[in-house]
């Protein structure tokens, strides 16, 4: 364990330390999530039944947008100051270093979202069981968002208007995660059982863990050329 995954842990440790020196950025993404989700009832109206119905979708969309916010800075600073070059030239597997960066991104932007999700769910008057299912679906789903997002961030690295472009490339690819994640709560309320949704979400996560860091590395090498 110590040997093969050492570069992965090194990259996670470094990015977490950097995030700790930049606390405002972390808090901004979380605050963005909270405020977006809270704006929805203001736009739709305070009808409790309706809000309960849209809560899973609202929280999931909030999580998508909050992830996008952090993705723009996933590789850009390291690209600017040459760190990414050094990582590409490291004798350690570049893919593992990049996987570490993606993991750190999830810990900083995805995990806090998962942790405040139950609180926001209460605001939408979700019952306890739905709350638990929603949080679990976000716990499984937000890493998918970080992993797929990393591919987009690598493709748009150093490109004109990369922020908007990133959203255009990545949001369509988020649709399966959104459907299975937000759908789990509704399926449960409809009495359909949630096993299907969760196993598909899990399969998606596994596929992303295997392929996304590798594709990201290929895209980063293209960007560095």
């Amino acid at each position: 364990m110590n040997g093969a995954f050492a570069p992965f842990r090194q990259a996670v440790r470094r990015d977490l330390l950097l995030a700790a020196r930049h606390k405002t950025e972390v808090i901004t993404a979380l605050f963005f999530f909270v405020i977006v989700v809270n704006l929805l009832p203001l736009g739709i109206g305070p009808d409790q039944d309706l809000l309960r119905k849209i809560a899973p979708g609202a929280l999931w969309i909030g999580a998508l947008l909050a992830t996008l916010l952090g993705l723009q800075r996933l590789f850009a600073p390291d690209h600017q100051d040459g760190t990414l070059e050094q990582m590409a030239l490291s004798p350690q597997p570049f893919t593992l270093l990049i996987a570490g960066k993606i993991m750190a991104h999830w810990l900083v932007s995805g995990l806090p979202v998962v942790m405040v999700a139950p609180l926001l769910g209460v605001q939408f008057d979700l019952p306890g069981r739905s709350l638990a299912i929603l949080t679990l679906s976000l716990l499984l789903g937000t890493p998918i968002l970080s992993l797929i997002g990393a591919v987009g961030a690598a493709l748009t690295l150093g490109v004109r208007g990369s922020g908007v472009l990133l959203s255009l490339l990545i949001l369509p690819l988020y649709i399966p995660a959104l459907i299975f994640g937000a759908g789990a709560v509704e399926a449960d309320l409809a009495g359909l059982g949630i096993e299907g949704h969760f196993s598909l979400l899990g399969a998606l996560l596994l596929a992303c863990i295997v392929f996304a860091p590798w594709v990201t590395t290929v895209a980063l090498r293209v960007a560095l050329e």
């Binding site: 591919v151 690819l173 649709i175 399966p176 459907i179 759908g183 895209a219 293209v222």
Partner: peptide, 26 residues
């Protein structure tokens, strides 16, 4: 970069189609 995106897309198209159909039946 376009080639990578096209390949990522072509892998995702069936997944997206399947998930949308799933969503539709729900």
């Amino acid at each position: 970069a376009g080639a990578i995106l096209a390949l990522v897309g072509v892998v995702n198209v069936p997944i997206i189609y399947f998930s949308v159909q799933w969503w539709n039946t729900l």
